[in-house]
Amino acid sequence: MKILGFFRKRASASAARERLQILLAHERASVSGFDLVAVLREEILAVIAKHVQVDSRHVRVKMERGMPVSTLEVDVEIPFDARARAA
């Protein structure tokens, strides 16, 4: 019990340290004007919009800034038009 409590206590400061290290690595990079994940997000959406009319309500973007990798998840509902015919 005591040992468990000891480890649980240790966890909070090290959790703080790890969260800060990841957060600040990203903030330092983006304050200098370049946030790769944000740039990718914008450009990917622009490419999709060039080809299909996308309703912004049906676009979900999820970002997980991590260390050493971040993930960017773009979930777009592309409308299927059944009336369109091949020319």
């Binding site: 206590k9 966890a11 909070s12 400061a13 090290s14 703080a16 800060l20 600040l24």
Partner: peptide, 12 residues
């Protein structure tokens, strides 16, 4: 371990 220690803050 319930508060960031000196080394943690200095390292960050």
């Amino acid at each position: 371990g319930d508060m960031l220690n000196v080394d943690d803050v200095l390292e960050i």
